[in-house]
Amino acid sequence: MSVHAEAIEEGHGTGSLGVPNLKLAMWAFLGSECMFFGSLIGTYFFYHDHSLAGPLPKDVFSIGITSISTFLLLMSSLTMALGVDAMRRGKALRSRNFVWGTALLGLTFVGFQVFEFHHFVTEKGLTLATSLFGSSFYVMTGFHGAHVTVGVIWLSIVGWMIHKGHFGQEKAINVEVSGLYWHFVDIVWIVIFTFVYLLEFAK
């Protein structure tokens, strides 16, 4: 089969650059996502200390609780990497377990975020409409949470496809690409946790 007849199979070939189409597409998409989250995080800092009404970040953030959810999300990157590695070596069931484990950790993170939002709204009186802080915080972290949720759904489907025997070693690229997305979402959170949460308490 010629180079491009093969590469046309919806991204499973390796094309002119020697990289599978699907992987190249994911990198390009993640580049685009960098601009997306860059704009959201930029908006947050553009409005940092510009709020005319409280509560302020220091009044609402609980570093202890958020550290736990951050730790869980970081660990999910480890399980994701193990899942990708298992699939590359052809250990499908092991891979499925790690992929589903990753989705579970991600789901727990989303659960923490729902709890955090609920706590902020009901206990601290911070809503979307309270202040520039409320608007920019909820929209930024909300879109990150939405990305984690999409990742959870995606990984659940990937795990299901492995479970059903649709993804074997020859389709390890499908697991790897979902892993790329997952690590990216994780990295965005590292940026948000460091600069939005931790730096508030650095002074």
Binding site: M35, F36, S39, L40, Y47, S131, S135, V139, F143
Partner: peptide, 27 residues
Amino acid sequence: PPITVGLILLGFDRTFGTVFYQVSMGG
């Protein structure tokens, strides 16, 4: 992506009551 974010913020302002572009709230 930057205009997508700009449009999302505008949509949130108009639909969900955020204050990104509300000058009276410091926007």
